[in-house]
Amino acid sequence: MQSLTELRQVCAALPHSQETFPFGLTTLVFKVAGKMYALTSLDAEHPSVSLKVKPDDGEELRTAFSAITPGYHLNKRHWITVPLDGSVPDALLRELVQGSYALVVRGLTRTAREELNL
Rank of each mutant, 00 (worst) to 15 (best):
T81M: 08
R77C: 10
L39P: 02
C11P: 09
Q2E: 14
Q9T: 13
K54Q: 06
L14H: 06
A112R: 14
R77E: 14
A13Y: 02
D43S: 13
G107P: 07
T27E: 13
R110W: 07
Q9W: 01
A12K: 07
V97W: 00
L93W: 08
R110E: 15
K76P: 12
P83Q: 05
A102M: 01
L93V: 12
R8G: 11
E115I: 04
S50V: 08
R77Y: 13
D43N: 14
A38D: 06
G99W: 00
A102P: 04
E19N: 08
T69V: 14
Y72V: 09
V88C: 13
L7K: 07
F30S: 08
G34Y: 00
D57M: 11
V104R: 01
R113I: 13
L14P: 10
H78E: 07
A102G: 11
L84F: 02
Q18T: 12
L42F: 00
P83S: 05
A44D: 14
T26L: 07
L92N: 09
E45D: 09
T5A: 13
E59F: 02
K35F: 00
P89Y: 09
S100M: 05
T81Q: 11
L42N: 03
D56C: 05
P22Q: 01
D43F: 07
R113T: 14
V97R: 00
D90W: 06
L93G: 11
V53C: 09
A33W: 00
R94G: 12
S3H: 06
N75S: 13
T81C: 08
V82D: 09
K31L: 01
H78G: 03
R62L: 02
F30I: 07
P70L: 02
G107L: 04
T26E: 15
V29H: 02
K76M: 04
T26C: 08
I68C: 04
I80T: 10
T111K: 15
A44W: 05
M36N: 03
E59P: 03
A44F: 06
D57N: 12
V88E: 14
L4S: 12
S3P: 13
P22C: 01
S50Y: 10
S50L: 03
R94S: 13
L108K: 06
H46L: 08
L7D: 08
T20R: 04
Q2H: 10
V10C: 05
L25P: 15
G71E: 07
R77T: 15
V82K: 08
H78F: 01
V32E: 01
P55W: 02
A38N: 03
L25V: 13
D56W: 07
